[in-house]
């Protein structure tokens, strides 16, 4: 798979987004061992330092942790991942409503559109 990066936005922030989605979607589950920085850098075809920075941010957010000499793991705290998912969903929903507002549609009407789309 090829990952596309927008050169206008710091690369580590875009990597962070990809990684968050991996956690939310369960590509990597609670407690899973993660690829090494170098392996990740090869997958995304980015600079290992940039990869390290993105993983560092995830670690600061407690979503992953480093076990000395053993590598990096996804947190075992499933609540934390659920919260990440909720926050992400809320952000997406907000951006939908903002877009609808721009074309003059309120919340109730916007929800109607969603329902019409159905499954």
């Amino acid at each position: 798979m090829d990952f596309v990066f927008d050169n206008n936005i710091p690369i580590y922030i875009q990597l962070l987004e990809y990684l968050k989605i991996y956690l939310i979607s369960g590509t990597f589950k609670a407690g899973d061992k993660l690829p090494s920085v170098r392996e990740f850098a090869n997958i995304f075809k980015v600079n290992p330092n940039t990869m390290q920075k993105a993983l560092g941010e995830l670690e600061d957010m407690k979503l992953i942790y480093t076990e000395r000499t053993n590598g990096k793991y996804v947190t075992e705290d499933e609540e934390l991942i659920k919260k990440l998912k909720d926050d992400y969903a809320i952000t997406l929903a907000k951006s939908y409503f903002q877009g609808m507002k721009r074309i003059g549609l309120g919340k109730a009407e916007s929800i109607k559109y969603l329902k019409e789309l159905g499954d």
């Binding site: 050169n7 206008n8 710091p10 690369i11 580590y12 922030i13 920075k53």
Partner: peptide, 15 residues
């Protein structure tokens, strides 16, 4: 640093 510069200028290095 490349990413800091992108962050500061909100644009690509190219731009």
């Amino acid at each position: 640093d490349a990413d800091s510069l992108r962050n500061k200028e909100h644009s690509s290095i190219d731009e």
